[in-house]
Amino acid sequence: MIVSLLSRALMMSTPLLYGSIAEVIAERTGMMVTAIEGIFLMGAWGGFVGTYLTGSAFIGILMAMATGTMTAAIYGIVCIFLKQHQVVTGTAINILAAGFCTYFQRVLFGIPTSPLKIDPLSQIAIPVLSKIPVIGPIFFYQNSLTYLVYFIIPLSYFLLFRTSIGLIIRSTGENPEAVDVAGINVNGVRFVVVLLAGVMGGVAGAFYSVGYLGMFTTNMIGGRGWIAFAICFLGNWNPKGAVIGTVVFGFTEAIAIYMQSIGGGSYFPNELFIALPYILTIVLTVCRKNFNVPAKLGVAYSKEN
């Protein structure tokens, strides 16, 4: 039973990992991707539409990357090149994303008589590895998006701390002027990482629709983009921290689902479990000290004046 709970926790962690790692990379350049909730939602929608129309989850996920990137691109243009406020712009985009996918869901499918369904991604057992007791069923009996994230975690760490691109990314968030003086286009760097956040956030969103539930509703993200955003803060702007933070959240969410499924509602109200991840965020935001905040987080870069 514990094994199935942990396996569940890992599964619920997957989209948060995509989201929070994308957020870590972006914020290291000084860009808070506050449109993350909208990117998740657009990814969920794009993934659903792609899968439903073609029958291929692979194309669905590509579509999710496209819709996520499109959303991120609008955010990037307004915040980076037009130098508008990141929080304000992000919030506006999140509202627009909600309106957009509800409306286009209707444009594409009208008012269906029964809820539209797709087949969620299936769990794939990795030969040999999945046979290892305890660890096997937890780590090696997951869907393909979870397996992909296994590679993304070390890759993101390597990118940030071992490569020249990583050095540029980290320098951009600390002192964009130094990057500019070194002859690197600061706003270009920022735009690229925001687009990357769009790709990864889109996949994260698709995890909910294509990877797990097999359907789409407008409220299916329900603040999980924000939780990925929070994890980035709580994980001290480091992929390692993001992994730890995500596991904690994924676990909370798995417990909530589990408690509901076994009728824990007779002892505690279900709403308590639903609220748990959000309460946890508040508590951790308060407890977490010694932040390693990128010095220029949230500040647009312009060199003249």
């Binding site: 020249s164 050095l167 320098s171 130094a178 070194a182 690197i184 010095a295």
Partner: peptide, 19 residues
């Protein structure tokens, strides 16, 4: 135009290394 949080070496090679 130095990055205070980075080391001397990291500052000097910024933008001048690849891969």
């Amino acid at each position: 135009s130095l990055v205070p949080a980075h080391t001397v070496t990291e500052n000097i090679i910024l933008g001048n290394v690849h891969g």
